[in-house]
Each structure stands twice: as C-alpha cells, then as structure tokens.
Design a protein around this nucleic acid. Structure first.
Length: 138
DNA sequence: GCCAACGTTGGC
DNA sequence: GCCAACGTTGGC
C-alpha cells in the first residue's frame, strides 16, 4: 500500500510551517468544508503532506506527515467534522510559489489550482515529484 | 427542492 | 481593498 500525498493550506500569520516545526506535532482542526473533510478522512498515518502558506508567502514551504488519522474534530461541537494530526518532516530547499506552480504545465491539473479555495487537497504522485524537483532541483 | 442572498476564502 | 469562486442558508 503506497502512501498518498496531500496539500494543506494555512495562513502563516495564524499557523506557519515554522510553528509546526516548533511544536513537533499539531492538531489539524477547524476544517469546515465538506470536500476538504472528505480528504482529511482519506488520510492515512504516514501519508505525506505539502504545507502551503496562503495569503502571505503563497508557496509550498515544507513537507509534513500524517501522524494521526481522522477523528472527531474537538473544535466542532456539532460533531460533523474531523481533524487529523500532522508532524513536520522538513522544510523545502526553496519554496515553490503559486506563480511557479501555475506556470508549470505538469501541474495544470492540480486540485489546488483548479479549486483555489479548497484547504485540503490530494496531490498525485507525479505532481508530488514535480513540486519536489522544483524545490530542490537546479 | 429550487434558487437568491449572503458569508468566507484566497489571489491579485 | 476588491472581486471571483463557491459553499451554505433560508424563504418559498
């Protein structure tokens, strides 16, 4: 069973990749969108996750991993949504900006580009490899 | 069950 | 600060 790949967005002013590195692990809660919640539910322990900074930075800045699979979101009193837990793996050698991703033909089909408001989205193996190459190549 | 109004996200 | 995308709500 090969691990899946994902991308999560966070506003760095609220919670940046550096905060995740400092904390060592965090609860990824507060997702209140059904499509995003479906993706959270599909995450498995050990899956890889790109950490994207929205609003400021506008770039994939690091890699994280799923350390706890979906469970009822403690911040949702109605009990409809789920949370997962993430741990930092490493920062990218060089952030991959939204502009660079849009300019890369291999990423034209990416879920996060096609639906910009989706805060949790799947990343295909090919897309994952492309972004890593953009971050570490040259 | 439809659809208009409204709220939120996020890029520019 | 504006606007597009899109999800949700509520009246009918």
């Amino acid at each position: 069973m090969t691990a899946s790949h994902w991308l999560v967005k966070s506003e760095p002013a609220t919670y940046a990749f550096a905060d995740l590195q400092r904390d060592g692990r965090t609860v990824w809660d507060g997702v209140r969108n059904n499509a995003a919640a479906l993706h959270l539910k599909a995450m498995k322990t050990g899956d890889s996750v790109f950490f994207y900074h929205s609003q400021e930075g506008l770039a994939v800045v690091g890699v994280a991993e799923v350390v706890r699979e979906a469970y009822p979101d403690p911040s949702d009193p109605a009990g409809r949504f789920v949370a997962v837990e993430l741990a930092p793996v490493r920062p990218l050698g060089r952030p991959v900006t939204l502009a660079a991703m849009k300019a890369e033909p291999a990423l034209a089909g990416m879920a996060m580009l096609r639906q910009s408001r989706l805060s949790v989205s799947p990343v295909s193996p090919a897309e994952w490899a492309t972004i890593l190459r953009m971050a570490e190549g040259d």
